[in-house]
Design a protein around this nucleic acid. Structure first.
Lengths: 202, 202
DNA sequence: ATACTAAGATAGTAATTAGTTACTATCTCT
DNA sequence: AGAGATAGTAACTAATTACTATCTTAGTAT
């Protein structure tokens, strides 16, 4: 955590992103200063700007990181699924696991979402979330086509509920202040979601 | 919105709270400065501190306002309900209507929720949200006792999903940037929630 | 070894922030 | 009408912020 050794630009950039994620676990994202980021890495504040031209660029990189890593996890989960419904379940589990591993990530995303519309970081987050919802809606449409769910299911609404279910868990974490409770809570929530979209359970 | 006239302390305090709510509709809560609040009311920055000893006190007042008004709306909705399930539906509708009328309110709440645990404003928000969830869980328990929902329903999980459903709508609003889309989306989401808790529909 | 490159340190700047102080204008109560 | 209380103003302050010069030094290729 206190490397006296110098790091190449690329590695240091990644470490800055990780530092932000770490700090966001305990502080509101907007309150994270470049000074705090530098301190987290054992560097001086000025050194941060050797790797990013501006503070905003850091946040864009963080969003990038989340987009990339969450995207990978999700893609892997869906890829190894048998049917669309199985894919949805794996997607949910993977997403929850990701949040449990990086609790600050969804908070960061949600925080950026609150910024003025013009803000470039918000644009990125909007795109990210919109793509995510579309992906869920797609899976639901496939499930419907295979008669795995309620035949008259409102996919768009069900996709919103999917995101909401995850958000509900995030709220739960923020209330409890303990990411440990996340996965058990998720396991209790999933059957409810399944019933919401009209899956017949054994 | 630009009163040259002096206001009594109580009224001005309320106007400051309203100003914050207005500003929070377009800016991230943390980014709202006392200067911006004063400007919104057509006063000087120093005048704000005539009515609140500190910035934090303002946010506590805002949470108070939300707690009071949302609480009233909710209590009224539940009071005029026939059975627990009807009460839950009215609670949902009332909550959504409140958000549509004050979109910044839930965002503010959620934002404060992200602060460090020690933060006094967060404590208040935690209590508020926890009470809310308990209330929902109570209604669900009553509904279960009257055999209106799935007899083996996990009430705690269903309460989390309730909060999540609302949060999903908030996310939807932030994405669309238009509170108008909220109520239609809510009407599409509610049947899904009802099915999730095992209500038999006509 | 030596010289080049780039990561980091040091020490700034200008702008913005919450909060204060001394004064003025307005309201209210008798 | 006059006096006390108080809402509001103007002009500060001290601290913090993102960001930037200039210098140092560590890693690397020759």
């Amino acid at each position: 955590m206190m490397p006296k050794t110098r790091l190449a630009a690329g590695e240091r950039q990644l470490e800055i992103v990780r530092a932000v994620l770490t700090l966001a676990a305990e502080n509101s994202p907007d309150a994270i200063t470049t000074q705090a980021i530098a301190q987290q890495m054992g560097l001086t504040q000025g050194a941060v700007f050797r790797h990013f031209p501006t503070r905003e660029a850091i946040w864009l990189a963080v969003v990038d990181w989340v987009e990339q890593n969450l995207g990978d996890v999700i893609a892997a989960a869906v890829a190894e699924a048998g049917d669309p419904l199985d894919g949805l379940g794996r997607l949910f589990a993977a997403h929850v696991a990701f949040i449990a591993a990086h609790p600050s990530a969804p908070r960061l995303i949600f925080n950026e979402l609150q910024k003025p519309a013009a803000h470039p970081v918000k644009q990125r987050v909007c795109d990210l979330l919109d793509r995510y919802r579309r992906r869920v809606a797609e899976l639901l449409a496939h499930a419907k086509a295979k008669a795995l769910v309620e035949p008259e299911l409102d996919e768009a609404a069900a996709a919103t509920l999917f995101v909401g279910t995850v958000q509900g868990l995030v709220v739960q974490t923020l209330l409890a202040g303990d990411p440990q409770t996340l996965q058990p809570a998720a396991r209790r929530l999933w059957p409810l979601y399944l019933r919401a979209i009209g899956v017949r359970q054994p």
